[in-house]
Each structure stands twice: as C-alpha cells, then as structure tokens.
Amino acid sequence: MKKLMQIQSDLKVNELIKEEMKKQAVSSVELAERLHIAPSSVYNILESDSIQVARLETISKALKINFFRIVAEQINIHEPANEKIESLEEQVRDQRKENEILKEVITLLGGNK
C-alpha cells in the first residue's frame, strides 16, 4: 500500500497534460475553447496535482489522447482482468482435455455402453 501511495505522489497528471499540449502546440486558451470552459479553469487544472476523472476524460477527448492508458502504464497496470480471463480460459482448456482423456479411459474399460 505504501508503494502505491509513493507511485501516486510521483504521478503528475497535470504534467502529462502540459507535455501533450506542448507536443500538439495547443495553448491553454485553445484547450479552454475545446473544453468550453474559461481559460482560468484550464490554468487551475494545469496547476493542480489532482484531476477529476470526468475532467480527464474530456481533456483526453479534446487532445485525442488516452491519458488513462498513460497513467495505467505509469502505475504498472496492464489490464489485470485480461490476464485473469486468459488464465481461466487456459484452465478450461486443460479441463476439457482431461475430460476427453477420461471419456476414452471409461470407454476402454467398457463403460458407457
């Protein structure tokens, strides 16, 4: 838990946004226009250490970049649900193979006539 807190304190979403704005040559005023908010609100967002999820979503859409994916990569989250699904699918395949083998054994032993 302490490591997660350390990662969170090192992660600066506002810095990610600033970097992307610089890459795209998007000014604060232009971003404000895209978000339909006042430029002062953009300045506040860019100076804040935290951001609401809904606001990050709108900024992601305005800049056409998935900041959520970038944040997930930075905190080393690589779709754990998919890994669990893959593991379960592998277990199902193994169980099916075992069932086929058991059916053959039963048939060889004269069962299921």
Rank of each mutant, 00 (worst) to 15 (best):
Arg96Met: 12
Lys97Pro: 01
Ala81Met: 10
Arg93Ala: 09
Pro80Ala: 10
Glu98Ile: 06
Asn82Lys: 12
Gly111Thr: 04
Glu98His: 09
Ile106Trp: 13
Leu109Gln: 14
Leu88Glu: 02
Asn99Cys: 03
Lys103Leu: 14
Gly110Val: 00
Lys97Cys: 05
Ser87Met: 11
Gly110Met: 04
His78Ser: 13
Leu108Arg: 07
Glu98Gln: 09
Ile77Ser: 07
Lys84Tyr: 11
Glu100Ala: 09
Ser87Cys: 07
Pro80Val: 10
Glu98Trp: 03
Gly110Asp: 01
Asp94Lys: 13
Leu88Asp: 03
Ile101Thr: 11
Arg96Gln: 14
Arg96Ile: 14
Lys84Pro: 00
Glu90Asn: 13
Glu83Cys: 04
Glu79Trp: 11
Pro80Glu: 15
Ile85His: 06
Gln91Ile: 02
Glu86Gln: 03
Ala81Asp: 09
Ile106Ser: 10
Ser87Lys: 04
Ile101Gln: 11
Lys103Ile: 15
Glu90Val: 01
Glu90Pro: 00
Glu79Pro: 02
Asp94His: 11
Glu86Cys: 02
Lys103Trp: 05
Glu104Gln: 12
Leu88Phe: 04
Gly110Ile: 05
Glu100Asp: 15
Gly111Ser: 06
Asn82Pro: 01
Glu79Val: 07
Ala81Asn: 09
Asn112Gly: 13
Gln95Gly: 05
Arg93Glu: 03
His78Ile: 07
Val105Gly: 00
Arg96Leu: 15
Asn99Thr: 05
Ile77Trp: 06
Lys97Met: 12
Asn99Met: 05
Pro80His: 13
Leu102Lys: 14
Lys84Glu: 12
Gly110His: 02
Val105Met: 15
Gln95Arg: 06
His78Asn: 14
Glu90Gln: 13
Gly110Pro: 04
Ile85Phe: 05
Ala81Pro: 00
Ser87Ala: 13
His78Tyr: 15
Leu108Ala: 04
Gly111Gln: 09
Lys103Val: 14
His78Leu: 09
Asn99Pro: 01
Glu100Lys: 14
Ile106Tyr: 08
